[in-house]
Amino acid sequence: MSDISVSTLLRAEGVGKSYTLRGRRVDVLRGVDLAVRGGEVTALVGHSGSGKTTLLHILGLLTPPDGGRVFIGGADGAPAVDTTGLPDGALADLRRSRLGFVFQSYNLLPQHTALRNVVLPSLGRRHESEARARALLARVGLAERADHLPGELSGGEQQRVALARALVNDPPVVLADEPTGNLDTESEEMLLGLFRELADEGRAVLLVTHNPAVSAAADVVHRLDKGAFTTPAEGVRTDTAAAERTETGSAE
């Protein structure tokens, strides 16, 4: 894996988004500022309609904001990229190289095996990509299921395939939308453990959730209500052990 620096890898400044519903303007997001750092699991929480999924899609360069800016940081000291006004092709390149997505509904192609689903987004050469895909499936505990179709896998297994797919291009940022929403407790705990491992490697992990178990496992929690944060811009830190590790490192 590349050396991913522990720094702000994803940043929103004054992000706003509105829609027109039955002739009336609805403000979904209102001037949101957010910094997502490498080495941390960050959770976005809020009730349905609070704007958390819209914010995730904007941060993931899937939906343009009406106002504000989104900056994508890079690995190996690469400077942050201001995504404002970039053409679709450049945005697609950033999504492929710097962002990994995990969706609640998995979004696996049913006609392809687990291995093929992981390989498909790869930017590498075919042989190298397949080797990496097999290694990632082994990492998520699915080495023996590589040749199975999604329909032959449990929900937890499908979500782990989706996580392996998100990692195939070694992105510094991983985004997940309600990743445990369809999972049993055992699968949920396994997936949260994998997200923790990714953060410990220096990646920035951002989870949208309404699940208290997921937010409790995060280092930083931001709560959205009516399109704005109800907590300070830096969020609420929940992982005392992580804070202690940071302090110890600083002391050294």
Results as ranks from 00 to 15, higher is better:
186 E>V: 15
225 D>R: 11
113 T>M: 09
98 R>K: 07
139 R>G: 01
74 G>I: 06
74 G>Q: 07
87 P>H: 09
227 G>S: 02
145 R>K: 02
178 E>V: 04
18 S>F: 01
225 D>G: 03
226 K>V: 10
150 P>V: 04
89 G>T: 11
63 T>S: 00
10 L>W: 04
39 G>W: 00
24 R>H: 14
4 I>K: 09
129 S>N: 10
182 N>A: 15
212 P>A: 11
71 F>N: 02
225 D>F: 13
223 R>M: 02
150 P>K: 06
29 L>R: 10
131 A>L: 07
51 G>R: 14
7 S>N: 13
133 A>S: 07
194 L>Q: 03
64 P>L: 12
106 Y>I: 03
119 V>S: 01
248 T>F: 14
201 E>C: 05
10 L>M: 06
230 T>A: 14
75 A>L: 05
238 T>S: 01
247 E>Y: 07
9 L>I: 01
60 G>S: 12
227 G>H: 06
192 L>M: 10
130 E>Y: 00
40 E>P: 11
146 A>P: 01
81 V>A: 13
231 T>Y: 08
185 T>L: 09
14 G>V: 07
129 S>C: 05
63 T>P: 03
1 M>W: 07
173 V>K: 08
148 H>K: 04
36 V>K: 12
25 R>Y: 13
36 V>D: 08
135 A>R: 05
30 R>L: 12
247 E>K: 04
125 R>C: 06
230 T>S: 15
98 R>V: 07
246 T>F: 15
203 R>K: 01
133 A>T: 04
115 L>Y: 06
142 L>N: 00
212 P>R: 00
238 T>A: 09
132 R>K: 03
119 V>T: 03
225 D>E: 08
221 V>P: 04
13 E>C: 12
97 S>I: 05
141 G>D: 03
105 S>N: 15
153 L>Y: 02
50 S>Q: 03
207 L>H: 13
56 L>H: 10
31 G>Y: 01
3 D>K: 00
63 T>M: 14
59 L>R: 11
123 L>W: 11
137 L>D: 02
148 H>L: 07
222 H>G: 09
42 T>V: 13
19 Y>C: 02
212 P>S: 11
239 D>L: 02
205 V>R: 06
164 A>C: 02
103 F>D: 00
181 G>D: 07
122 S>T: 13
217 A>C: 07
21 L>G: 11
6 V>L: 15
252 E>H: 05
235 G>M: 15
71 F>L: 06
88 D>E: 15
92 A>M: 10
197 E>G: 08
175 L>H: 12
205 V>S: 03
71 F>Q: 04
120 L>R: 11
200 D>T: 08
160 R>N: 02
176 A>W: 15
103 F>R: 08
232 P>M: 13
189 E>Y: 10
210 H>Q: 10
62 L>C: 02
101 F>V: 08
78 A>Y: 05
58 I>P: 12
32 V>G: 08
206 L>V: 12
117 N>G: 11
158 Q>E: 09
154 S>A: 01
241 A>Q: 03
55 L>P: 11
205 V>E: 02
183 L>S: 06
21 L>N: 13
171 P>H: 09
57 H>C: 10
193 G>T: 04
70 V>F: 10
1 M>I: 01
159 Q>M: 00
252 E>V: 09
240 T>S: 14
246 T>H: 14
99 L>H: 01
177 D>Y: 02
68 G>Q: 05
14 G>I: 06
213 A>D: 06
94 L>Y: 11
203 R>E: 02
216 A>F: 05
